[in-house]
């Protein structure tokens, strides 16, 4: 195979009338490309495009609660200890950056907002304590709009939230999990519970 390629290369050089390397010169041992057996067709650069049907997932930028209140949504990471960094402003919700986005097929879109604060009083999230199955929340990200229908509104002790791995799981169809606080309040330790609203995607 290699001999045949060398002979073909010599033939090409001869036909083209190019001078061969002068006898006695030392060819450097670099990995120079051998001339291809046929002329090379130059193709225009071609970069793949996503299919037209491709949905680009986007993190939510706005949440509309069942009572119509609109809450801007910020990105929320976690502290090294694992606490979700919820926006201080009670009128804004945080979206957990490790969770799902609008347009993803699976997992939880996790939002959280303060139910109240000493400086601002009650926040919009307080209305979620009275939400019921069947209520609708809307999440918006640019042209992405997705409705979610409430399936449950329950309380979980805050110090046991970490056991609810299902709330933050990537498994199962896309759903909304909205967290705030409620239950008995202690001035030193804060609220005892998280209020958890779970809503399934609809429409």
């Amino acid at each position: 195979m290699r001999t045949r390629r060398c002979l073909s290369a010599l033939l090409l050089v001869t036909v083209a009338g190019c001078a061969a390397a002068p006898a006695g010169s030392t060819a450097p041992p670099t990995p120079q490309a051998e001339p291809p057996r046929v002329a090379t067709t130059t193709l225009p650069p071609s970069v793949a495009a996503p299919a037209a049907s491709q949905v680009v997932p986007r993190r939510p930028a706005l949440a509309v609660l069942p009572d119509g209140t609109r809450m801007p949504v910020d990105v929320a990471g976690t502290t090294p200890a694992g606490a979700l960094r919820v926006p201080d402003d009670v009128t804004r919700a945080g979206w957990w950056r490790g969770g799902s986005r609008l347009g993803d097929g699976f997992g939880s879109v996790v939002l959280a907002a303060h139910v109240d604060s000493r400086t601002q009083g009650l926040g919009p999230a307080a209305s979620l304590l009275g939400a019921a199955p069947g209520d609708v929340l809307l999440l918006v990200a640019g042209r992405h709009r997705q409705r979610f229908v409430v399936v449950s509104v329950t309380r979980v002790a805050r110090d046991r939230l970490r056991e609810r791995v299902d709330l933050f799981s990537a498994r199962g169809p896309l759903r909304l999990v909205f967290l705030t606080c409620g239950g008995p309040f202690d001035p030193l330790r804060g609220y005892r519970d998280n209020v958890v609203v779970v809503a399934r995607r609809t429409g």
């Binding site: 200890a81 606490a83 109240d116 967290l179 001035p187």
Partner: peptide
């Protein structure tokens, strides 16, 4: 996953 969500301080 987050281990805690502290969302309220006024009772």
């Amino acid at each position: 996953a987050p281990t805690s969500v502290d969302t309220g301080s006024a009772g």
